[in-house]
């Protein structure tokens, strides 16, 4: 497996790609915070936030619909918000029978549900844009500059770097299990659920030992190459004037959404 399987970075040389990673992390978080702060049914502000997102998307050369296609990941979670449709008091819109209960959808409940889904849908698209236009090591570097503890950023950097190695290991284990699990068509093969879980547990234990021993070899190899506890980069990570101006402008516009959403 290639190391870039997990990478969500899409190489291009757009305005957004060239921005410093700190700028993108800060603006993304501000945008998500702004969505969460907007009151329910602030349609104008939601619309403006969406235009902001589209504008950023256009500046990133990823093509329209890039973030949209990947944003459906949050849809299943909307299920947990479904209950607000019927649990918030308000003008009844429609009543239907669900198994044994008569449920009434209210207008206030509908407004809340739609608002929650819009907030989540806008937020996840901005996060997708962030990792599509920023190399993950640069995101980690930005976190380091933003005062996330060094030990945590280093763990994240190692996690990212060795994930694909261990996932390869998992695929080897899964393939080995598959190879030993031949079954005659039409007959049930293997033991009970507990037995199957036990097999999976042994695989997890096996994976743990292989990872543990590999980490020893990795550390020795890194020591031999001059590792001192710091992960260095040749990327200068200097903030230019365009970075400052973009941050200020973006934060100002996001602040405007709050003003629009609250008057």
């Amino acid at each position: 497996m290639h190391s870039d399987v997990f990478d969500r970075y899409h190489a291009a040389n757009s305005f957004i790609h060239r921005l410093d990673s700190r700028v993108k992390v800060v603006v993304t978080v501000a945008f998500i915070l702004s969505n969460a702060l907007l009151p329910d049914a602030a349609w104008t502000a939601f619309g403006l936030s969406w235009l902001f997102l589209l504008f950023a998307n256009a500046l990133s050369d990823l093509g329209p619909g890039f973030t949209l296609q990947r944003s459906f990941i949050v849809l299943p979670f909307a299920l947990v918000a479904v209950t607000v449709l019927v649990s918030i008091p308000g003008e009844p819109l429609t009543t239907f029978r669900f198994i044994a209960w008569d449920l009434t959808i209210t207008d206030a409940g509908l407004l809340r549900f739609v608002s929650i889904v819009i907030r989540s849908w806008l937020s996840v698209q901005m996060a997708i844009l962030l990792v599509a236009t920023t190399r993950f090591p640069d995101v980690v570097h930005a976190l380091e500059h933003l005062r996330v503890p060094f030990i945590l950023t280093t763990i994240i950097a190692f996690l990212y770097r060795y994930l694909f190695v261990l996932v390869d290991e998992v695929f080897r284990l899964l393939r080995a299990r598959e190879a030993r699990s031949a079954a005659v068509a039409g007959f049930r093969a293997g033991g009970s659920v507990a037995w199957r879980a036990g097999v999976a547990g042994n695989m997890a234990g096996q994976l743990f030992l292989r990872s543990y021993e590999r980490s020893d070899r990795v550390y020795n190899a890194m020591l031999a190459r001059g590792y001192t506890g710091h992960l260095n980069t040749i990327n200068p990570h200097e903030l230019r004037r365009v970075d400052y101006v973009t941050t200020a402008l973006a934060l100002f516009v996001i602040l405007l959404f709050q003003v629009v959403g609250r008057v």
Binding site: T154, I155, A157, V165, S211, G229
Partner: peptide, 15 residues
Amino acid sequence: QVPLMGIMAAFIFAA
């Protein structure tokens, strides 16, 4: 221990 914890994090992810 820091590289060890990083690889252990990758282990949890992979597991």
